[in-house]
Every structure is written in C-alpha cells, then in structure tokens.
Simulated scan of single mutants.
Amino acid sequence: MPLHPDIAQILAGLPAPPPGPLDPVAMRAAEEAQVLPLEERLPLHSVEDTTARTPAREVPVRIYTPVEADTYGLLIYFHGGAFFLGSLETHDHVARSLAKETGLKVVSVGYRLAPEHAFPAGLKDCYAAVRWAAENGGTLAWDGTTLAVAGDSSGGTFVAAVAGMAHDDGFDRITHQVMFYPSLDLDFDVDRYASLRENAVGYGLETAGLKPFNAFYLGSGADPADPLVSPIKRADLTGLPPALIVTAEYDPMRDEGELYGRRLKGAGVDATVSRYPGAGHGFVQHFSWIPEYHRVFEETAAFLKGES
C-alpha cells in the first residue's frame, strides 16, 4: 500500500533541515519542545522517576505502573534516537502505551548518549538496568515471570545487543525481546539491503541521513563490525530469547530487521517478524496515534502473553 495519507501529509509539511552539520544540542531541544504537557499524557496508576543503583553507576530510570496490583511482570524499555537523541521525556508516551496495553510494569532507561559519552556507555547502562531490575525484583514487585526488553530504532539495537550480552554472561532471566524497526547493521553500504535503495527518499528517515545521524555514535568508538554495535553480525544466535521484530514498509532499515528475524528462526529462536504496511521509520514514536499503528502495542502485548 502507499505511504499512509496522514503520514504523507505531515511529512510534506515539514521544513527542510537547516544546512550544515547536525547540532545535537539544538536537535535535542527541538525534540523536547514537542513533548506533551503532563496533564495531556495517558494516565496510569503511577509514574515515578528514580535511580537504578548499579555496580557501574547510577542510571536514571522512569517506572510506569499501569494498575494497582500485588505483583507485575517487567518490561525494560530503551528509547530510540540514533544513539544521540531521545530521552525519558521524548518517549514517555511510548512507555505509557506499552504499560497500559501489556499490563506490565515498564522501566524506561535514561542511558548515556553519544557523542558526550563514548561507546559502550549507553549500552552498558541498558544492560546494567536490566540486571538491576532482576536483582531488585522485591522493590519492583516483580512476580518473577516476564522480564522483557524492548526498544525502538537504536533502542532496538540495544535490545539485541543486551540479549546477546546476557546470554554470553549466563544471565538467563530475560524472557522476551521486542524490537521496533531496529537498526541492526551499522554498515550503511546501500547495496547491502534492497530497502536502503527502495526507501531511500521521501519517507521521513532517508538513507543518505543514516551515516550523519549515526556518526556521533560511530565516532565515539562504536565499530560497525562489532556484534554489540551491529547485532546482525553476531555469529551464533542460538539460545537467545523469543523475539518480536516490528518493521515498517517504507523504512530504509526494513530489510536488516527482517533478515535478523530469519536468522533467529534459523538458529532455533522463536521469532516473529511483523511488517506494518504504509508506515515509515519511527512510526511507533511519531504516529502511534493512528489506530492501525497503535495496534503495535496490542501486538506486543499478545506476543508477551504468548498469544501471537
């Protein structure tokens, strides 16, 4: 199907980006300016900012409790933003919707960003937050069952990398991994995947923008050949948690996500790949108010409950 008309209309009205190199400070400020005021956000039983005190450092987290209950399953969420954008605030609405639709307590991680913090600072924060959640289950009222990790775009990169790190460390508490249009191969050779050419221009995120957007991360020491940076390069995918990989029809990174899903299946991992027609990269963050795309939260809930 063509690009969803509501998305196409909004993209057509966006101003051209300013000339010159990307300015992380200005871009972050512009994103924060779009955040809804508190009174307009989806209400939940409670939303609390706190700190995950890990052996490495104190990591800011925001905990979303959907309803009052004695115990909960947990979902640890990593926001997207090409490793240099995004925050607890810019993705607050995503975390709220995940909590509401899944019924899980969501822990959103305020990990360190490039270029101020070199690789693997952000990844280490995400992994540390997952370990912290498991080790502090009593404080979080964890029921000891579901411990899922989820993320969008570069947050999906961290999901795949954290799942691999946990497996290699013998930490087997992660039960599910959910990746929304993940960036899994940071080698941006346009001939590697057909979607890099098919969806190169006109759908929001453009192929030519991948290198400059990810330059802050790669310039901080992240090597695209490293499986922790490009999880699709991990040689052995056996033993990883069941996965839901959501892709978008008009995303330049569509094909790498779908290839990763096929590779997981080939390694014996229970993996579901779900392509959303008419959508482009970032639709969970920017366009989940459209009913057919809000369904992604319901699909995630069904996956986590074993119903998909």
Rank of each mutant, 00 (worst) to 15 (best):
P17E: 09
D251A: 03
V106Q: 08
A267H: 13
A128Y: 11
L75E: 06
Y72A: 13
V162P: 00
L42T: 12
L196F: 00
G80M: 01
V109F: 05
A302W: 12
K100V: 10
G151F: 02
Y217C: 01
R131T: 13
L113A: 04
R192F: 00
Q285V: 02
E58Y: 06
A114C: 08
R192I: 00
A33C: 04
P18F: 11
S288W: 00
P18S: 15
P55K: 11
P252A: 01
A279L: 04
P2T: 08
A99S: 07
S97Q: 15
P15T: 03
P227M: 04
P21E: 05
K265V: 14
S220F: 04
R62T: 05
Q285P: 08
D189W: 01
G80F: 00
F213I: 13
S230Y: 00
A33T: 06
V149A: 07
R263L: 12
L74H: 07
E68G: 15
R263D: 02
L36Q: 14
Y127H: 13
H294I: 10
L88T: 03
A222D: 03
S46N: 08
A99P: 03
V94T: 10
V67M: 13
P60N: 10
E116H: 07
K105D: 07
W132S: 06
L184R: 01
Y276R: 03
T238E: 11
G103A: 03
G110W: 09
P182R: 03
R112T: 09
M165V: 11
L140Y: 05
T146W: 13
A279Y: 01
S87L: 08
T175E: 10
H4Y: 04
A12H: 04
P212K: 03
E68D: 15
T238V: 12
A118Q: 09
E298Q: 15
Y77E: 07
S230K: 00
H176E: 09
R112S: 11
R275P: 08
F180G: 04
E198H: 08
Y276Q: 02
T145M: 12
L74M: 05
S195N: 03
P15F: 02
L228G: 09
D185K: 02
L140H: 06
P252D: 00
P15N: 10
G257P: 03
V269N: 06
D191L: 10
A29G: 10
E68S: 15
Y64N: 12
G20D: 08
F216P: 02
V159W: 09
R263F: 08
A166K: 12
A166T: 12
M165S: 09
